[in-house]
Computed example of a mutant assay.
Amino acid sequence: MRTSKRTTTARRRVTCVARQGRWQRGQAYVELIVMSLAVVPLFMLMPMIAKYQDISHAAQMASRYVAFEAMNNHPGSTGWRSEAALAADVRRRFFGESSAPIKTGDTAGEFDAHRNLFWRAPGGAPLITRFDDVTVQTANAGSQDGTPYLLHSAMGLRAHGIHSGTVIVALANLPAGIRSLEPFDRIDLSIVRRTSLVPDAWAATSPAQAESRFGGLALVNELFDSGIGDVVGFGITASELLGRVAPPAFGQLDEWRDVVPADRLKPAE
Results as ranks from 00 to 15, higher is better:
residue 71 M to S: 09
residue 36 S to E: 00
residue 143 S to R: 08
residue 21 G to S: 15
residue 4 S to L: 10
residue 65 Y to V: 06
residue 173 N to H: 02
residue 3 T to L: 03
residue 129 T to A: 12
residue 166 T to M: 12
residue 26 G to A: 08
residue 59 A to E: 04
residue 138 T to Y: 04
residue 3 T to N: 10
residue 10 A to V: 14
residue 169 V to L: 00
residue 193 R to M: 04
residue 7 T to W: 11
residue 47 P to Q: 08
residue 185 D to H: 09
residue 205 T to M: 06
residue 236 I to G: 05
residue 214 F to Y: 09
residue 181 L to K: 04
residue 220 V to R: 09
residue 89 D to E: 10
residue 9 T to W: 09
residue 120 R to E: 10
residue 96 G to E: 07
residue 183 P to A: 05
residue 158 R to F: 10
residue 182 E to K: 08
residue 161 G to I: 03
residue 70 A to W: 02
residue 252 Q to S: 12
residue 149 Y to W: 06
residue 13 R to G: 15
residue 186 R to A: 13
residue 128 I to V: 13
residue 219 L to M: 10
residue 186 R to G: 06
residue 238 A to Q: 12
residue 262 A to V: 05
residue 8 T to S: 08
residue 132 D to T: 13
residue 197 L to I: 09
residue 128 I to K: 02
residue 78 T to F: 08
residue 173 N to C: 09
residue 149 Y to P: 03
residue 36 S to I: 03
residue 260 V to K: 04
residue 15 T to H: 07
residue 255 E to Y: 06
residue 222 E to T: 13
residue 9 T to M: 13
residue 46 M to Q: 03
residue 123 G to C: 10
residue 72 N to Q: 11
residue 235 G to I: 11
residue 219 L to R: 12
residue 19 R to Q: 14
residue 191 I to P: 06
residue 82 S to T: 13
residue 64 R to Q: 11
residue 9 T to L: 15
residue 226 S to K: 08
residue 196 S to N: 06
residue 260 V to R: 03
residue 1 M to Y: 07
residue 251 G to C: 01
residue 83 E to I: 00
residue 208 A to K: 02
residue 55 I to M: 12
residue 198 V to N: 09
residue 256 W to N: 08
residue 44 M to W: 15
residue 43 F to A: 15
residue 130 R to A: 12
residue 214 F to P: 01
residue 69 E to F: 04
residue 252 Q to T: 13
residue 258 D to V: 09
residue 125 A to Y: 06
residue 83 E to H: 01
residue 112 D to G: 11
residue 120 R to Q: 10
residue 32 L to S: 13
residue 26 G to L: 04
residue 267 P to K: 03
residue 220 V to S: 12
residue 256 W to S: 08
residue 38 A to T: 14
residue 26 G to H: 05
residue 150 L to F: 14
residue 207 P to L: 00
residue 227 G to F: 07
residue 200 D to G: 00
residue 172 A to Y: 01
residue 54 D to N: 05
residue 69 E to S: 15
residue 91 R to A: 01
residue 107 T to L: 04
residue 201 A to E: 01
residue 92 R to F: 10
residue 200 D to I: 02
residue 189 L to P: 00
residue 20 Q to D: 15
residue 71 M to R: 14
residue 63 S to W: 05
residue 4 S to T: 07
residue 247 P to T: 04
residue 75 P to K: 10
residue 158 R to I: 14
residue 80 W to C: 02
residue 40 V to R: 10
residue 95 F to M: 05
residue 94 F to A: 01
residue 246 A to P: 09
residue 207 P to E: 00
residue 129 T to N: 12
residue 127 L to C: 03
residue 261 P to K: 07
residue 146 G to R: 02
residue 249 A to C: 05
residue 235 G to D: 12
residue 83 E to W: 03
residue 59 A to G: 09
residue 158 R to A: 12
residue 141 A to G: 07
residue 74 H to I: 04
residue 60 Q to A: 15
residue 13 R to S: 13
